[in-house]
């Protein structure tokens, strides 16, 4: 199994929206390389013909009836907002798609 490079860590941090500092990148790259080296063992079973388990219990079809339940009040909904305006969450300018 390949290890992980500092550049990869930087890329992952961008994907995960973490503005890591340079020294953190160095630090984490080393630690993550160790961890990945250890956990890569799971690929020992990669070829085995066993189904993956995503859920610990074999439940299926848990659904609710299409019935309206009370919502929060807008005051409650916005109670934790770092900023608000016109009963809406106020956020910094959004880049990207229109």
């Amino acid at each position: 199994m390949p290890g992980i490079t500092r550049e990869e860590v930087a890329h992952l941090a961008r994907l995960a929206r973490l503005e890591l500092k340079d020294e953190e990148l160095d630090h984490f790259a080393g630690q993550l390389d160790d961890i990945i080296g250890a956990v890569a063992r799971v690929s020992e079973v990669a070829d085995q013909d066993v189904p993956p388990t995503s859920h610990p219990l074999p439940l299926t079809n848990v659904m609710r009836a299409d019935e309206v339940r009370p919502s929060l009040t807008p005051e409650q909904a916005l109670s934790g907002a770092p900023a608000q305006e016109q009963q809406r969450f106020k956020v910094p300018q959004i880049l990207g798609e229109e």
Partner: peptide, 15 residues
């Protein structure tokens, strides 16, 4: 597949 997928297979084996 190598990581998450394999880990979920291990989960099946442990179960």
């Amino acid at each position: 597949d190598a990581y998450y997928g394999s880990a979920q297979k291990v989960r099946t084996l442990i179960t």
